[in-house]
């Protein structure tokens, strides 16, 4: 890497370093009481002991699994339904009002109903997160189907492609890069919803980052809360980078 690149790359890191410096300053000069705002050292110690006792890793895995499970439901469903809606006017008119209304309210409102049916379980969390993530891909998928070049549709028909072939050989590949931003949004929405649902009522098996945070807040352990928050942030970063990488791989045909 060229030195100039290193220098310009450093700008990305400066805010994080600044935050750490301010954090340390605030606690060193006792600007906030340490039992409300824990010093870095306490946070780090909590982090180490949480990792050592396995709670943190177990919860991270539980949360990640829930996020992945809900994406596995939400993305294919959102893409297929969205493309069909963008392509066929009748399907669009049939579904759009329901989706608009559901989209407009906090998805957690449905969590109560899910709890009646499935109790505090992975199923409840995954379903509520799927619902939220579904909308992340639905609207970009509708837009993608509508933006298919009309000449390409003409070509497909010129070669006698049927509806199924148009769907799989034109609409789906055309959507791949068009809905990458939607997939990214879905990832974020699923993550938000899983963590929120975990906080809402005791998480199944007592594991989940959201639940862990809630628990340590109740037990008045700010160091542990901060440690969990840092893990949440780190995982969020991984999610964003993974999504960017996948987007690049999937749309190699763009210049």
């Amino acid at each position: 890497m060229k030195p100039s690149k290193l220098v310009s790359g450093a700008w990305y890191l400066i805010p994080f370093i600044l935050i750490l410096v301010i954090w340390e300053a605030v606690t060193t000069f006792s600007l906030l009481p340490p039992d409300i705002f824990p010093p870095l050292t306490t946070t780090f110690a909590s982090f180490v002991s949480l990792v050592a006792e396995g709670t943190l890793v177990g919860s991270l895995i539980a949360t990640v699994e829930r996020v992945i499970a809900s994406l596995l439901i939400a993305i294919p469903l959102g893409v297929v339904v969205g493309l069909l809606m963008g392509w066929k006017g009748s399907i669009f008119r049939f579904l759009i009002l329901i989706f608009t209304v559901v989209f407009a309210i906090p998805k957690l409102a449905f969590y109560g109903i899910l709890l009646f049916f499935f109790g505090v379980s992975d199923t409840s969390i995954v379903l509520i997160a799927s619902l939220s993530a579904f909308f992340g891909v639905l609207f970009p998928a509708i837009a993608s189907a509508r933006s298919v070049d009309s000449t390409l549709m003409k070509v497909a028909k010129d070669y006698d492609a049927g509806d199924m072939q148009i769907f799989f050989k034109v609409l789906i590949p055309n959507a791949v890069s068009g809905i990458a931003s939607g997939v990214k949004l879905a990832l974020t929405l699923a993550y938000i919803e899983v963590v929120t649902a975990e906080m809402f009522r005791a998480a199944p098996g007592g594991v989940g980052l959201g639940w862990l945070m809630q628990l340590y807040a109740i037990y008045d352990q700010p160091g542990a809360v901060m440690a969990v928050l840092l893990v949440l942030l780190a995982f969020g970063g991984v999610v964003v980078f993974a999504a960017d990488y996948a987007e690049g791989k999937l749309s190699m045909w763009r210049k």
Binding site: T151, L152, K154, V155, D158, K169, V170, P173, N174, V176, W253, R254
Partner: peptide, 11 residues
């Protein structure tokens, strides 16, 4: 038909 405008599937 060979169309006037670009008609190749870009992917």
């Amino acid at each position: 038909t060979v169309f006037q405008e670009a008609s190749l599937f870009p992917w």
